[in-house]
């Protein structure tokens, strides 16, 4: 049943991608509406697959890479829908929909191994920790997408070559605003996630900080985004620099999320094992 919902979600995400891409080319309102509705359908299927797994196994399904990626895709789709509702930045769907499709597709390719973790996983703090971290990550992903679009549009304006993208992308101001809002949401969620993580660590291991590689890299990531926000608030770091930093930040995030587990080991290792 989980597999069925996941496959349906992938199908919807792919169709949504097609909708948004054809919207980019043809600029017909109906296409982006379709893209948005399909993404919503994909999100619901994705959510159902997670809930079903939760009910079936009685634990929050973030035990292995297959499950974590599914949750990541789901939060990305959900958060994009919220941002789309708030900022009407339709074209960002060209980034969000395929990313959700890709993430979930990788997820279903992986074997669904049984849980190897003995720790009780229904603790409120751990669920809260995982959920807010994923929302934060999804927001950082959107910031990266907005940053890419910003750079594309900026180079069109600066280069004075008003080709394909100039007319199709929104103003620099809105791209910058959405990027900033994404970072603020991401940073807030990520901070909450870290705090609950510390509390949980204290509960389980008796210490707030264990020098686990995942913790270290999360710390690096937090400092990175903190610096970005500080510069923006203090000296008005905006536009190109902020866009580039959002993209680099997402690189750091990907390493923290996946790289750490592949190259280093630690107590988060199992969650991304397959």
């Amino acid at each position: 049943m989980t597999a069925f919902f996941s496959m349906a979600a992938i199908l919807f995400y792919l169709l949504s991608t097609a909708g948004y891409v054809s919207y980019l080319f043809l600029q017909k309102n109906r296409l982006h509406q379709a893209g948005c509705a399909l993404l919503g359908a994909g999100f619901l299927c994705n959510l159902l697959s997670i809930i079903y797994e939760f009910v079936a196994t009685g634990r929050f399904p973030v035990q292995n890479l297959q499950e974590t990626l599914s949750v990541a895709a789901c939060t990305l789709a959900g958060l994009f829908l919220v941002f789309q509702y708030r900022y009407r930045l339709r074209v960002l769907g060209v980034f969000a929909a395929p990313l959700a499709a890709l993430t979930l597709s990788v997820s279903v390719q992986l074997p669904r191994g049984p849980s190897q973790i003995e720790i009780v996983f229904n603790n409120f703090w751990i669920i809260f920790h995982v959920v807010v971290i994923f929302i934060g990550n999804a927001a950082f992903a959107l910031a990266c997408g907005a940053g890419i679009l910003y750079l594309v549009q900026e180079s069109a304006i600066k280069g004075k070559n008003h080709g394909f993208f100039f007319h199709r992308l929104p103003s620099l101001n809105i791209l910058d605003t959405v990027g900033y809002a994404s970072i603020v949401v991401g940073f807030t969620m990520f901070t909450l996630g870290l705090i609950t993580g510390f509390l949980y660590a204290k509960l389980v291991w008796g210490r707030f900080w264990n020098w686990d590689p995942k913790e270290v890299w999360s710390g690096v990531m937090w400092l990175f985004y903190a610096a970005l926000l500080h510069e923006r608030l203090a000296s008005g770091w905006r536009g190109r620099k902020a866009a580039i930093m959002s993209i680099i930040g997402f690189g750091v995030l990907l390493f923290t999320f996946l790289g750490v587990n592949f190259f280093l080991s630690g107590h988060h290792g199992a969650f991304t094992r397959w």
Binding site: Q153, I157, F166, H167, P170, S171, L172, N173, I174
Partner: peptide
């Protein structure tokens, strides 16, 4: 769509930078 006079082209560019 899209401006075909100098002054209007400038306005259109301004909107792509500032939004409103």
């Amino acid at each position: 769509d899209h401006a075909v006079s100098i002054s209007y082209a400038a306005i259109e560019l301004g909107r792509k930078i500032f939004g409103s």
